[in-house]
Design a protein around this nucleic acid. Structure first.
Length: 572
RNA sequence: GCAGAUGUGGCCAAACUGGAUAAGGCAUCUGGCUACGAACCAGAAGACUCCAGGUUCGAGUCCUGGCAUCUGCACCA
């Protein structure tokens, strides 16, 4: 029979008659300080109703309350009513749940509602810069979190595979007179595209007419010119080759790679609909949707040469996604610099009469800043070159990890693969451990730091748990556990941390904040490291009981690590 | 100029819907491997939470007004 400790306390408080059980439940919290008990009810808000000092109220309640089932004692302190649970009861209940549900423990039941997550979404034709890891890792983690909270998640990589940038690349490619035979195009490499893009930017400064040429070339591409189309396809597949290699290293997958070009066929209908609904205005030969009443600049739909823009394609994408997926929520995991763009797009959809436009949510995050020559932190720009490439950072991290493995664990099999997994996990963790709106100041030392609150710290805790379970060579069942052997400080604290999994998933999902789970993984790892250090498992009289706790901790940690994009490796 | 984000020890930062003595990490100092993985643990030191008012029994958190940094603001995405 399951005990609800929270409900029991709420009912006991409600029995006094001045609060309902629901109100008492709302007041109930878990103290930060474990010496303050397992649950507490602050009595300050009761002071008005009872017209007594909170301290007195807490003391009165403590002396008169009927202890609910599973609560061993209650204490009044500083106006708080602190409840201490019966450790054996909570240990037994929590650990048996974990053992029975395994990795599913703490996950919510399926809701049969769909959530679309649009993340990573890099531009085709450019290499992934290190700052692209932000949308990729935050989006991946949020997708995992929504899944854990019971939603059916659709992961979309909204590739930037359309737009004037391709005009630029085409212009530059032809200007340099590069060969256009099929073999050359098939073997095109991403670095070459990067170079073309950079030299376009340079040349365009001296010859501004190149910008017009690029726009013309894109217009031609958009009109379906087959030669331009051939070049575009080659550019795209060269980029995708490299992207897929990086995603594989990071353990990231998508359900759809529907980039901007995918929505091209739907554009005429969108423009027509805007026209029919009387929303289009002309401004300097461009088609725009005016949003003056919302204090927003107009949303640009069509350029003077008739070609489309980012916003137009986002409108088409939103309509397509609604038709196709019937989502209850659609997340756009894109940096905060684009907040205005999304407000414009969402507002335009609202003006079109789509009441579901409020299901579209921009999930902004802070920028990755780089130190300039003048000593100021600024947004990294791939072009000006002070932004590092993702593959370079992964490689540097791999090399550093590999050297550490050679030194600490020279016999580790598959060391190269493990080094990559640790490296990528460290970068993921570093990106997720702080609230997403915080800017990240990139520097090599902190990006490659692996001590303290880092990826390797949480992975190491998992490795140690696995190692103990593995060396034991058998699996403990709950019937073999003596719960009294787990009431000590470190065992109990570890169990208590594990018990919070479901609530942390809920919190992370409700505020779209993956950092909550990253911090939680640190809590688990810390409790595990302490437990392992303090309590000998194998060969101890309490071996079976402690091993059971180890098994449970491993399961919870594994699932949480996976959610935040950290590889739950078993040896390092 | 307008709008948004951020401001917490030397550095990076946490704090669930306002709650107890403002977590934790890095760096510094001290201990701990013949103990299941020391990529670890234990301890010390370090804070007018940007400033000024206000609301409240109670403010890092809410309100008003400043200041600082970064970002965005019509034919790039």
């Amino acid at each position: 029979m399951k005990i609800s400790f929270e409900q029991g306390i709420a009912d006991a408080v409600a029995a006094f008659g001045f609060l309902s059980a629901d109100e008492a439940l709302a007041l109930l919290s878990v103290p930060q300080e474990s010496s303050h008990g397992d649950y507490s009810v602050p009595c300050f808000s009761l002071a008005k109703i009872l017209r007594k000092a909170p301290k007195i109220i807490a003391e009165d309640l403590a002396s008169q309350i009927q202890l609910p089932q599973g609560i061993s004692r209650v204490e009044a302190l500083n106006g708080y009513l602190n409840f201490y649970v019966d450790r054996v009861a909570l240990l037994q209940q929590t650990l048996c749940d974990i053992a029975a549900q395994g990795l599913q423990y703490g996950r919510a039941p399926r809701r049969h509602e769909r959530v679309v997550v649009d993340f990573s979404s890099p531009n085709i034709g450019k290499e992934l810069a290190f700052h692209h890891i932000r949308s990729t890792m935050i989006g991946n983690a949020l997708a995992n979190i929504y899944d854990a909270y019971g939603y059916d998640v659709v992961r979309i990589n909204h590739l930037g595979d359309w737009g004037t940038q391709f005009g630029k690349l085409i212009v530059m490619y032809l200007r340099e007179g590069l060969p256009t035979d099929s073999t050359t195009l098939e073997n095109l490499e991403i670095q070459e595209l990067n170079r073309l893009y950079a030299s376009f930017s340079k040349e365009a400064k001296a010859h501004p007419e190149l910008e017009d040429e690029a726009r013309a070339a894109f217009a031609k591409l958009e009109q379906g010119d087959s030669f331009h189309r051939t070049l575009w396809t080659a550019f795209k597949s060269a980029t995708l080759k490299e992207l897929n290699r990086l995603y594989a290293q990071m353990g990231i997958t998508f359900d759809h790679y529907t980039g901007e070009s995918f929505y091209e066929p739907f554009i005429p209908d969108v423009v027509q609909e805007l026209e029919q609904k009387g929303l289009l205005s002309q401004s300097q030969e461009r088609d725009v949707v005016l949003l003056n009443e919302l204090d927003l600049p107009p949303c640009l739909i069509r350029k003077s040469d008739g070609s489309t823009l980012y916003a137009t394609r986002d409108l088409a994408a939103a309509l397509y996604r609604m038709r196709t997926f019937q989502f209850v929520r659609c997340l756009y995991v894109v940096d905060q610099g684009q907040a205005l763009h999304f407000r414009q797009v969402f507002a335009t959809l609202a003006k079109m009469g789509y009441d579901w436009s409020d299901r579209l949510v921009h999930i902004p995050f802070g920028l990755m800043l780089h130190l300039t020559a003048e000593g100021k932190w600024e947004k990294g720009k791939t072009r000006s070159g002070h932004s590092s490439l993702l593959r370079d950072v992964i490689e540097a991290a791999h090399d550093k990890v590999f050297a550490t493995i050679r030194e600490k664990n020279p016999d580790l099999p598959d060391a190269d693969t493990v080094a990559t997994q640790i490296a990528v996990s460290a970068l993921a963790f570093n990106d997720l451990k702080n609230r997403r709106m915080m800017d990240v100041k990139f520097d090599w030392d902190s990006a490659l730091s692996f001590e303290g609150a880092t990826g390797p710290y949480v992975q190491n805790a998992h490795v140690r748990l696995c190692s103990i379970a593995h060396k034991a060579g058998y699996v403990v069942q709950e019937s073999q556990v003596n719960w009294e052997e787990l009431v000590d400080e470190h065992s109990y604290a570890l169990m208590r941390t594990l018990s919070l999994k479901g609530q942390r998933i809920r919190q992370a999902c409700e505020c779209d904040e993956a950092a909550i789970l990253a911090q939680y993984s640190l809590d688990i790892a810390e409790a595990a490291h302490r437990f392992i250090h303090q309590n000998r498992v194998l060969g101890a009289p309490e071996e079976r009981s402690r091993l059971f706790l180890v098994q449970c901790a491993q399961l919870v940690l594994e699932d949480v690590l996976r959610m935040i994009g950290v590889f739950p490796i078993r040896a390092m």
